[in-house]
């Protein structure tokens, strides 16, 4: 249901998708690992995220997680872009 709803959200343009992939791999990768297998932050691979509701993951990206090093990314990401990232993370993030 949530994945379906996410898919309905406007897809970022191809150029923007490329930027988002770079951002996730490189900058999220500072803590979560470039291969997203985790580091100081938890793993972001499909198996690790399987039991997490997509909307709470989107909220974490946008608003951060107080009390942890996870910062809010709303300055750099629109909500539908965060939804696109979550949908991709849950199904296997592109290289």
């Amino acid at each position: 249901m949530l994945l379906a709803a996410t898919a309905l959200a406007a897809e970022p343009s191809a150029a923007r998708q490329k930027e988002l992939i770079h951002l996730v791999r490189q900058d999220c990768g500072s803590c979560h690992g470039m291969t997203l297998q985790g580091g100081l932050g938890p793993a972001l691979l499909p198996a690790a995220l399987a039991d997490k509701p997509a909307e709470s993951l989107v909220a974490t990206i946008i608003g951060g997680r107080p009390g942890t090093p996870m910062p809010p990314w709303h300055r750099f990401l629109a909500e539908d872009e965060a939804q696109w990232i979550v949908a991709k993370l849950m199904t296997g993030f592109p290289q």
Binding site: S30, C31, R75
Partner: peptide
């Protein structure tokens, strides 16, 4: 930090 709100840290 004198109790001020922290700026977000995008890399440690």
């Amino acid at each position: 930090g004198r109790g001020e709100e922290k700026l977000p840290v995008f890399k440690l």
